[in-house]
């Protein structure tokens, strides 16, 4: 019943990948992909918009502190995952009912909504630049904190939020950019350690009682604690 189509062929408009057997329900992650499915013969009424919010990784990774598999235990490597707070799907509610029921019974609360476009696009416009610099820097929060990575991520959000507003026809999304600065991402990284199963170079939840050092980023002068100098926690390999 389920399957995935790699996004790169879709991005390259190689629609031959859509020649799968017909399914009662097809989840489309991005609004502009919807037309590709319709062009490939998938009935429009069976298309629903949604994205299964879940972060998954090959566990254990360096710094992981909650997963039962020790980093040295390569024989028992597993996939770690962190589900999102709630799955939302937009489309035919009759078709969606069994899907949202299955997700909810499986431990991932899900519900059908009337319009997902604005919600998804605004979230994605805010996060995608940040995720891009994280991935480019080997998912190291330490690396991302250095230099201008967070400033670049916030500059990207300033570009993308007006685009998301235009795509969703919701002008208010564009105004969100006035609240997006490097500092916002930095505060988010501090909060993230309470939700992620691994440190990612952030020193974990005990983010206090250490020495401060001065750094400058995006023209904003501020302090943060130096994990490397304190020697009280492990970090991913600093560059």
């Amino acid at each position: 019943m389920t399957g995935t189509i790699p996004s790169v062929p879709l991005a390259g408009r190689r629609t031959s990948v859509l020649t799968a057997p017909p399914a009662p329900l097809t989840i489309v992650a991005a609004p502009d992909v919807r037309q590709l499915y319709i062009d490939a013969g998938v009935p429009s009424e069976s298309l629903v918009l949604g994205l299964i919010d879940m972060i998954a990784w090959q566990a254990p990774i360096p710094g992981e502190r909650k997963h039962p598999v020790a980093p040295s235990d390569t024989a028992n490597a597993a996939i770690g995952y962190l589900p999102g707070p709630g799955q939302k799907f937009a489309g035919n509610r009759r078709l969606l009912a069994p899907l949202t029921d299955a997700f909810t019974k499986g431990g991932l609360p899900a519900r059908a909504v009337d319009d997902l476009t604005a919600f998804k696009l605004s979230n994605m416009a805010f996060f995608i630049g940040f995720l891009c610099v994280l991935q480019t820097n080997d998912w190291s929060f330490d690396h991302v904190r250095e230099g201008g990575h967070l400033s670049q991520a916030s500059s990207a959000a300033w570009e993308l939020l007006p685009i998301a507003a235009a795509m969703a026809q919701r002008p208010w999304i564009g105004y969100l950019r006035f609240g997006v600065y490097a500092m916002v991402y930095r505060l988010m990284m501090i909060a993230m350690v309470h939700f992620f199963a691994f440190d990612m170079g952030t020193c974990g939840p005990n983010f206090g009682g250490r020495r401060w050092r001065l750094k400058v980023d995006a023209g904003v002068r501020f302090f943060w604690r130096s994990a490397e100098q304190s020697g009280t926690c492990s970090t991913t390999s600093p560059r």
């Binding site: 996004s7 502009d32 992909v33 994605m124 995608i128 480019t136 670049q152 570009e159 685009i163 235009a166």
Partner: peptide, 24 residues
């Protein structure tokens, strides 16, 4: 990357800047 390409494509279509994000 699908979303990334979508944003860049839609930005260009609407004449909105995408340079910083595209470089990232």
């Amino acid at each position: 990357e699908l979303y990334a390409n979508t944003f860049i494509r839609e930005g260009r279509k609407r004449g909105l800047p995408t340079t910083t994000f595209a470089q990232l």
